[in-house]
Simulated scan of single mutants.
Amino acid sequence: MRVLLIGGSGYLGTVLAEHLSTLGHEVVVLTRPAKANTETPYERRVGDLTDPASLTAAVTPDIDAVINLGQPSGDEAVDRAAIDALTAPLRGTDRAFLYTSGVWVLGATGDTTADEATPTNPIPIVGYRPAIESHVLATAQDGVRATVVRPGVVHGRGGGIPAMLVDLARRQGAPVAVADLSVRWPMIHVDDLATLFAMVVENAPAGTLWHGVTQPAVSVRDLSVAAGQAAGVSGEPQVWPLEDARAELGALFADALALDQSVSGDAVRDRLGWQPSNTDAVADLAAGSYR
């Protein structure tokens, strides 16, 4: 397949582009005009998620699938317009469109492990994203093989939110967790997530939603201790008060880091045969890619 990848220069995007290429797919990266001259090993097209005409122009008949890893703009109307522009050329063709959401749309899950049928209860940082998910999935009625993937907290290759825990531990001289040591995060290795994306874009039926999670509920206390090991510091984890974290990171992001969740990713294993194979998050932090 020829796959138009939006967000191909980011943390997940670079790994996904590499993985798709290894599988024999041709990757075409959508680049913002300001980065049009940036080096890339892939074919490039220029467009911007705030410019619908540029998006529609990028989805030419030779494109078999579109994967949108782009960050939400913060404006629901802008994001809806981007989805409409990207899917307009796909309508009636059964070509694939994959939209990237995230498990934060589920909100705090309590003692129940959430799956794809669990109602959404989004925290403010992703407040309108469930509506965008529904907007994407509705295009399946117009002949788009539309799917949504909700990744957990991504780790691996020394990047993602766990890298922030390592940096905090290094700066504070001790392991650090935001707000509450009892918080749990659903986790997934970036290479396993890339494998999942490829399986979904290749084989998933239209109108389906998938959770990208390998570990449903990893203790942030354990993650912070492992991050301290990666940073070369030890001792009991320190709690970073939520108000202090909000002041430095912004309230929306800090509140997301304090969100306690348990989320299942079993559906994609059972229905598509996904077989994640990479190391778990705590081991990756303590003795893997973050050292």
Results as ranks from 00 to 15, higher is better:
residue 272 L to K: 08
residue 163 A to K: 04
residue 5 L to V: 04
residue 135 H to W: 02
residue 70 G to F: 04
residue 27 V to S: 03
residue 255 D to I: 05
residue 49 L to I: 07
residue 224 S to T: 14
residue 236 E to P: 04
residue 146 A to V: 03
residue 107 G to L: 01
residue 165 L to M: 15
residue 172 Q to C: 08
residue 98 L to T: 08
residue 20 L to M: 03
residue 44 R to E: 02
residue 227 A to P: 01
residue 156 G to F: 00
residue 80 R to L: 12
residue 183 V to F: 15
residue 102 G to C: 09
residue 79 D to P: 02
residue 280 D to P: 10
residue 219 S to I: 03
residue 81 A to N: 13
residue 80 R to E: 08
residue 81 A to G: 11
residue 103 V to H: 10
residue 78 V to M: 09
residue 288 G to D: 04
residue 188 I to R: 13
residue 83 I to C: 06
residue 276 P to G: 06
residue 144 V to K: 02
residue 88 A to N: 11
residue 221 R to C: 10
residue 234 S to P: 00
residue 85 A to Y: 06
residue 148 V to N: 03
residue 280 D to E: 08
residue 286 A to S: 15
residue 203 N to T: 14
residue 4 L to F: 14
residue 214 T to D: 09
residue 144 V to M: 01
residue 10 G to H: 07
residue 270 D to T: 12
residue 61 P to L: 01
residue 108 A to S: 05
residue 272 L to A: 08
residue 265 G to E: 08
residue 81 A to V: 09
residue 37 N to K: 14
residue 3 V to I: 08
residue 56 T to S: 12
residue 288 G to T: 04
residue 52 P to K: 02
residue 109 T to N: 02
residue 14 T to L: 08
residue 239 V to C: 12
residue 282 V to H: 11
residue 167 D to M: 12
residue 131 A to L: 05
residue 56 T to M: 06
residue 246 R to P: 01
residue 37 N to M: 10
residue 102 G to N: 09
residue 38 T to Q: 13
residue 279 T to R: 13
residue 135 H to N: 07
residue 48 D to T: 02
residue 99 Y to V: 05
residue 127 G to Q: 08
residue 41 P to S: 05
residue 10 G to N: 11
residue 81 A to P: 15
residue 112 T to A: 11
residue 203 N to E: 12
residue 129 R to C: 04
residue 4 L to M: 09
residue 87 T to D: 06
residue 104 W to Q: 05
residue 33 P to C: 01
residue 68 N to D: 13
residue 229 Q to E: 14
residue 197 F to D: 12
residue 33 P to M: 01
residue 169 A to W: 03
residue 192 D to S: 13
residue 228 G to I: 03
residue 58 A to S: 11
residue 35 K to P: 06
residue 284 D to P: 09
residue 101 S to L: 03
residue 126 V to N: 10
residue 235 G to M: 10
residue 71 Q to N: 13
residue 119 P to I: 02
residue 61 P to R: 00
residue 236 E to H: 10
residue 79 D to W: 03
residue 138 A to G: 05
residue 48 D to Q: 03
residue 39 E to G: 10
residue 126 V to S: 10
residue 218 V to K: 12
residue 82 A to K: 05
residue 31 T to A: 07
residue 35 K to I: 00
residue 81 A to D: 12
residue 29 V to I: 00
residue 29 V to Q: 07
residue 221 R to K: 14
residue 67 I to W: 08
residue 214 T to C: 11
residue 150 R to C: 00
residue 37 N to R: 14
residue 30 L to D: 00
residue 108 A to Q: 07
residue 118 T to P: 03
residue 64 D to F: 12
residue 40 T to K: 09
residue 270 D to K: 15
residue 283 A to W: 12
residue 202 E to T: 15
residue 91 R to E: 12
residue 258 A to M: 07
residue 212 G to Y: 04
residue 17 A to L: 01
residue 19 H to R: 13
residue 50 T to L: 11
residue 98 L to I: 05
